[in-house]
């Protein structure tokens, strides 16, 4: 059933069938999300700047999610010798980079009016900056080696070592005293965010992940085609 996650040919077939409906659904959800963001209430302290959250939080989540997917695929492809994971690693690394940059930029723009500074050496901010550096190194490694096997395995091992950073990012707000606020949504029983703000946030998260998914499908297909010509 989930063969399309591991086999390039099944992936091509599956993505061909879902691609057009996916684009339609994504545009509907993205428009809905933007309207919801426009109509969402202003914060009593932060005013209009609270709306940066609807960009900042989804991109941060997706930056972490992309890295987690790459970690899982690295384990699968190294352990079971499935080369599709290497294709995915190469294809989605730039997407994660873009999400990380979006997260850092929007956070910086939010921090100036709220904290009074563009950047602080806070545990959360620093670990996300290190994540960005790791992503950039992965992209560089993709351009580095001439031999394909060496390149793929090197990148997979590097991704595995770099995944130490993921729990550090997640728990940095709990382990250290940070200026960055702790998680407000992931407390599933009682999220400390009002429903009128939670709704647009979740819709925007779904929209962002679908946009990322569409770009990922396109990039993976291009990568598969390049390799077929190359081999």
């Amino acid at each position: 059933m989930f063969k399309f996650l591991l086999n390039p040919n099944s992936f091509n077939k599956f993505s061909d069938t879902i691609f057009k409906p996916l684009v339609a659904i994504t545009s509907i959800i993205l428009v809905t999300g933007l309207i919801l963001v426009y109509r969402s209430p202003l914060d009593y302290q932060q005013g209009l700047t609270v709306k940066i959250m609807y960009i900042h939080v989804p991109s941060a989540w997706l930056a972490l999610l992309t890295y987690a997917i790459m970690t899982i695929y690295s384990i699968i492809s190294l352990a079971f010798k499935i080369p599709f994971g290497f294709i995915i690693n190469k294809a989605i690394a730039p997407i994660g980079t873009v999400f990380t940059v979006l997260c850092l930029l929007s956070g910086s723009l939010w921090g100036k009016p709220m904290w009074g500074t563009w950047w602080v050496w806070d545990a959360r901010l620093t670990s996300v900056a290190i994540l960005l550096i790791i992503y950039v190194i992965i992209i560089f490694l993709n351009q580095t080696f001439e031999n394909r096997e060496v390149r793929e395995k090197t990148i997979a091992i590097f991704i595995l070592i770099g995944s130490i950073n993921l729990p550090i990012i997640k728990f940095s707000v709990d382990w250290w005293n940070t200026l960055h606020q702790p998680a407000s949504v992931s407390k599933l029983s009682s999220p400390s965010i009002d429903i009128s703000m939670l709704q647009p946030l979740l819709v925007m998260t779904v929209a962002f992940s679908l946009v990322g998914l569409i770009i990922a499908i396109l990039r993976i297909k291009v990568e598969i085609l390049t390799r077929k010509n190359y081999l």
Binding site: I130, I133, I137, F140, T144, E146, N147, T154
Partner: peptide
């Protein structure tokens, strides 16, 4: 050992050492 077959980008080795020495 990672850079044994790397003929183009030598500074990536130093970058890796700096990254993991944090």
């Amino acid at each position: 050992s990672m850079n044994l077959l790397n003929k183009t980008n030598f500074s990536i080795g130093s970058i890796l050492v700096l990254l993991f020495s944090i």
